[in-house]
Write a protein that binds this DNA or RNA. Structure first.
Length: 1115
RNA sequence: GCAGAAGUGGUGGAAUUGGUAGACACGCUGGACUUAAAAUCCAGUGGGCAGUAAUGCUCGUGCGGGUUCAAGUCCCGCCUUCUGUACCA
């Protein structure tokens, strides 16, 4: 009987570690620091299964190894404890999610403790703890109080932006802001009301409120982020998702798009993970090009909308003012108007016409030309005028020219000539118009290959530009594609569909009309929702053109495009393209962009696929926003009044009015005088205001948690500067690859932000990251037949069922087991034998199945009522076998293996080593308990090595070890150290096995070898290592004992058993001294009789000798 | 479609720069101990062929080529599986 009582040993040392706080990390230490972290676990109700600890074991081995190597190791653990499952459970059962969360955490902790992890539990954090989420709220406020300057590529306090606005307006600011942000001057700014100012600042803040189109899931009653939707349905629950407009908090992550991309080069993460972040950010370089929409032909008539060029908010005021101005023109204005209205210049002008927020003196809408005639008054407001010109040119696409009163009165002809000249230089167009289609293209070089344009069906311009003839068709198409779910549109990539709008755009260089189509292969959400189609150079455009018989002009030199488009950028030589003929991709692109810029019809542009992240959730179990609303504008609650804790509600569902669950709270108003939460009845919107009803999403609490661990109990600041500076960032982060674009991108974003604002020393959260593979479950299945209602299910053992051919009777050519089935069903008076027989398959709980796949039929019958009376058709030997399939390990698949059971039966050290032994860390692999006995007996052998005395008592001698034993030890030290550093834990388990096998064979019991061996194995099997360490006479924990040092001298060999190959095939081995020269080796080999035997008289052409490696004889 | 990873005995998997393919473990077979079982220990174990045997030969790392004295490893072309991603202009 082995005396390795693992249960006692493990309980003893787990208690010792807890009592002595063995793994507590110090924030002040002479030692170098090392930070090892596991991805934040969500404490689910199902508890841990054997798949979960895989990563924790690997990181624990590394953390323990680093302690032996003399590092001050930070290895904390905590819980990402806000989240949907607890809330769903609360909705179903009415229990407070706090309660179930605490129960789940207690269960997790119990399970974790049994596996012997070296976590520093004194630093535990929980995202749902108010003392923790106080700081999540604080970070939110920091984001709200910041804006992103693109000139410096950095976030700054919003107060600095206000200062700039007060002095210069926003003309000199290049910031990450909303697209519809207007230009204003310092004078404008200072004249704005407080509310207007706040409205504008929201457009700059890094977290902002905006009406956004969101993914609304009615069943879950919440908004989902893009990465929470899989195949058009919610990731959790699989419910349908629809598009809906809502007022939401958003995070301006797009500001950081480029830095998130650049930062990837500085971190040691798996390439696939980096790739998915790169794809997610989706940077593409190209140009934005503006196409003018040609006005409809006269017969088609024009739309009514074209004249409405004024800003809708101020149009009434503008029209009134314009009317007054028309009544009293200046002398110069009158004179110019008389000339212009005669249409001498061939185009129609309007006078005193509202354009956007201004009134232009004269405007030609079709040419987008504004003529201003200035009196003296303008001399005093040069700055204002410049701003106005800037707005009209840059934002609204007008060309503005200015004349003085004097010029008009004294030399009207010169003025008219000038106007005419400018009119000619502007894009042509007859009649009225003024719509533009902006597209983004990565191939500006192919602009001469454009033969049509395609708009997304949802594009704003569609209804506006469609001609009456095409109206019915277009409307039908738009309606049809709106009805098609995202999912359908995604799944159906083969169908080519679209409709011609009847309208044409003008090519910016050739001036030729280009037909405008709509088609749902163009996505409204990407770029501008419109493409310039170049069928000769793009597969989708090519397909579309072929399908609708549109022209496919070839603009590539020496390329045949009759069968397929030419999508290669590298080998492109442009032809048939005016001024870019003969150029390659890069040069042509450069030239086209220059030409577009000169024309004011485009510019070089970098486009990102990344969208701002919606941050509001209509949920109860999440962080409350530290926000109340004053006149509809959000206000932040000051840090000293935080945390703002979750209110109590009677139900965890949305209100009848569709408000989030917090709408049910009765005490949820902010008193600005008392600075506390008060009853809603007190809301007067003077000193008491309503609080925000949304809560934060799951990633809020997990985006900076690794930094809070550095100083988790600090009540004054997020974490002290000393702690943040000392620990810097995570050195090693372990977790699954499913977080690639969610958690890991948001974490990087927040870290960069906190770095910008001076809180963090680093701007990346994690230096090295490793994805561990999933451990899969081996599900068990039973096959059964259902005959009719009065016959209980008849189960067929899997080998009978699967080997149907072998078991087929010749007579009626049907599987033998069916005879049995019919016999049984007859007993139940079932007369319809075959007609209603259904073959079914069902999961069986893996706990009813043994290693030989035999089912415990009694347990199975008692398991579920529908199998209560089940009849079993067994194998010939009377056993009933199940079939096995590898699936994800999950409660619903009844294939969960609980680590507690393994610890109970074999011990935590066995579990730890076996999980590592299963295979490479990053690889997915099925859990199969079969091999665990091998690891367990290894530990028993290890134990025996130290306890080889009488009756298995402890026995280690102080005699020097044998040469062989030392060689074994040092070979092991070398390999294990290399393996740990390469995260190749499976191979070091094998190495330990070899070492123990060898030492056992050598009957080694020498302290000189066994003491370092205990340290070597302690990261893997810490309990047994502690126990042996203690028995070796040491006081205290083994955890900081120095790692044994490898000494190569023990591995030096004097001879080598050379494999001798003939033409590359190994025939025999020959032992030779290592100090021979190649020539001596050759001589020795050729003299060897076996060599001559192989050669059979032939003379070798060549003898290859690699000293210390191999000998190969050729010929 | 694109990107990445992988494919080796009955099974999980080793093989570090091209240098003895199958380490280590499971399973299986035989044996020892035992009234028996479990546990433990010992031996064997990629396929095929020849031989009483020691042993020898031969095939063999998804498939087809190639480079090399030598290829699981490098190159070219394909097949399959897994993961991620997608009308991204």
């Amino acid at each position: 009987m082995s005396k390795y009582h693992f249960n006692d040993i493990e309980a003893k040392w787990q208690k010792y570690w807890a009592e002595n706080q063995t793994f507590k990390a110090e924030n002040n230490s002479e030692k170098p620091k090392y930070y090892v972290l596991d991805m934040f676990p969500y404490p689910s109700g199902a508890g841990l299964h054997v798949g979960h600890p895989l990563g924790y074991i690997a990181s624990d081995i590394y953390a323990r190894y680093k302690r032996h190597k003399g590092f001050n190791v930070l290895h904390p653990q905590g819980y990402d404890s806000f989240g949907l499952p607890a809330e769903q459970y609360a909705i179903q059962t009415g229990q407070h999610p706090k309660k179930t969360t605490e129960e789940n955490i207690a269960r997790y902790r119990e399970q974790l403790d049994k596996i012997g992890f070296s976590f520093d539990w004194s630093r535990e954090v929980r995202t749902s703890d108010p003392n923790y989420y106080k700081w999540t709220q604080w970070i939110f406020i920091q984001l709200f109080e910041s804006w992103y300057c693109k000139t410096h590529e950095k976030a700054f306090p919003i107060s600095e932006l206000v200062k700039v606005f007060e002095e210069q307006g926003n003309t000199n600011i290049v910031a990450a802001c909303d697209d519809d942000t207007d230009v204003f001057s310092a004078k404008d700014w200072n004249a704005f009301s407080e509310e207007e100012k706040q409205q504008i600042l929201l457009k700059y803040r890094l977290t902002y409120l905006a009406e956004t189109e969101v993914n609304w899931c009615p069943q879950l009653g919440t908004v989902l982020a893009n990465d929470e939707i899989v195949n058009g349905v919610s990731e959790r629950g699989g419910y349908p998702v629809v598009r809906k407009k809502m007022k939401q908090w958003s995070m301006r992550i797009t500001a950081y798009a480029q830095r998130l991309l650049d930062g990837l080069d500085t971190i040691d993460w798996p390439q696939p993970l980096k790739d998915s972040q790169t794809n997610w950010i989706g940077r593409s370089k190209g140009a934005s090009v503006t196409f003018k929409v040609l006005p409809p032909t006269p017969s088609s008539g024009g739309g009514a909308g074209y004249r409405l060029t004024g800003d809708s908010k101020s149009i009434k005021m503008l029209l009134k003012k314009a009317k007054e101005m028309r009544k009293s023109p200046t002398q110069a204005e009158k004179k110019l108007w008389e000339e212009l209205r005669k249409k001498k210049l061939g185009v129609k002008f309007r006078r005193q016409h509202p354009i956007y927020k201004y009134i232009a003196d004269f405007v030609c809408l079709e040419k987008k030309l504004i003529i201003e005639v200035d009196g003296k008054i303008h001399d005093f407001q040069v700055e204002e005028d410049e701003l106005r010109t800037l707005t009209l040119t840059e934002k609204k696409g007008f060309k503005v020219i200015r004349f003085t009163n004097q010029e008009v009165i004294e030399s009207i002809d010169v003025v008219l000539n000038k106007i005419e000249e400018i009119l000619h230089s502007l894009p042509s167009g007859e009649g009225q118009g003024g719509d533009y289609i902006e597209v983004f293209t990565t191939r500006p070089d192919t602009i001469f290959g454009v033969s049509f344009m395609t708009l997304a069906p949802e594009h704003d311009l569609v209804s506006k530009i469609t001609t009456p003839e095409q109206k019915a068709k277009i409307e039908a198409y738009v309606e049809a594609s709106a009805k098609r779910s995202e999912r359908e549109r995604m799944a159906d990539v083969k169908t080519i569909s679209g409709v011609f709008t009847g309208a044409y755009a003008e090519h910016p260089f050739t001036g030729k009309p280009i037909p405008i189509w709509i088609g749902d292969y163009v996505l409204a959400g990407y770029g501008t929702g419109a493409v310039m189609a170049v069928p000769c150079g793009d597969q989708r455009d090519y397909n579309f053109a072929k399908h609708f018989d549109l022209p496919i002009p070839n603009i590539f030199e020496g390329v045949d495009i009759s069968e397929e488009p030419f999508e290669d950028k590298v080998n492109t030589i442009i032809a048939n393209s005016d001024f870019i003929n003969g150029l390659n991709y890069a040069d042509a692109t450069q030239k086209v962009i220059e030409a577009l810029e000169a024309k004011g019809q485009g510019e070089g542009k970098i486009n990102y696929r990344l969208r701002d992240a919606v941050f509001s959730r209509q949920r109860y179990w999440g962080e409350p926003f530290p926000v109340y609303y004053k006149n509809g504008m959000p206000q932040m609650i000051a840090l000293e009044h935080l945390p703002l804790t979750l209110p109590e509600v009677e139900k965890y569902l949305p209100t009848e009015e569709g408000e989030p669950p917090l709408g049910r709270a009765e005490v949820w108003a902010w008193d600005t005088t008392k600075n506390e939460v008060v009853h809603n009845d007190l809301i007067d919107n003077k000193t008491v205001f309503p609080l925000e009803l949304n809560t934060m999403p799951g990633w809020a609490g997990s985006s900076c948690y690794m930094f809070r661990y550095m100083d988790p109990t600090n009540e004054d600041v997020f974490a002290s500067k000393e702690a943040l500076d000392y620990w810097e960032n995570v050195d090693l982060y372990l977790g699954g690859s499913e977080h690639a674009t969610g958690h890991l991108l948001y974490t990087r974003f927040w870290t960069k932000f906190m770095h910008d604002r001076g809180y963090f020393k680093v701007d990346e959260p994690v230096k090295k990251l490793i994805n561990q593979g999933m451990i899969l479950g081996e599900s068990a299945f039973v096959n059964y037949c259902s005959v009719s209602e009065n016959v209980p299910p008849i189960l067929i053992s899997s080998e009978l069922y699967n080997k149907q051919e072998e078991n087929t009777k010749d007579s009626n050519n049907r599987p033998k087991y069916l005879d049995e089935v019919f016999k049984i069903s007859k007993k139940y008076n079932s007369n319809n034998e075959v007609a209603s027989l259904v073959h079914l398959k069902s999961h069986a709980d893996v706990t009813f199945v043994n290693l030989q796949n035999e089912l415990n039929t009694e347990a199975f019958k008692n398991w579920r009522p529908e199998f209560k009376d089940a009849i079993f058709i067994t194998e010939e030997d009377g056993t009933f076998k199940v079939s096995r399939e590898v699936e994800k390990m999950s409660k619903s698949k009844y294939n969960v293996v609980n680590p507690d059971d393994i610890c109970e039966q074999y011990g935590a050290d066995t579990l730890r080593m076996y999980e590592m032994f299963l295979g490479p860390l990053e690889q997915a692999k099925p859990w199969n308990t079969a091999g665990i006995t091998g690891v367990h007996s290894f530990l028993k052998k290890l134990w025996k090595l130290y306890n080889s005395g009488a009756e298995d008592s402890f026995h280690v001698s102080n005699e020097p070890a044998s040469k062989d034993s030392l060689k074994t030890l040092h070979k092991t030290i070398k390999k294990v150290q290399e393996d740990i550093e390469n995260f190749s834990f499976n191979t070091s388990v094998s190495t330990f096995m070899i070492a123990v096998n060898e030492l056992t064979a050598q009957k080694c019991n020498s302290r000189e070898v066994l003491e370092p061996l205990a340290v070597l194995i302690s990261p893997y099997a810490p309990h047994i290592a502690e126990e042996l360490w203690e028995r070796l006479g040491h006081e205290g924990s083994i955890s900081t004992a120095p790692f044994p040092v490898f000494d190569a001298k023990h591995l030096v060999e004097s001879s080598k058993e050379y494999p001798v190959s003939f033409n590359g095939k190994m025939r025999f081995k020959l032992e030779l001294p290592l100090d021979l020269t190649p020539a001596q080796i050759e001589e020795a080999v050729m003299a060897y009789d076996k060599t001559q035997e192989q050669l059979q008289g032939r003379t070798p052409k060549k003898v290859i000798v690699v000293p210390g490696k191999i000998i190969n004889i050729v010929g």
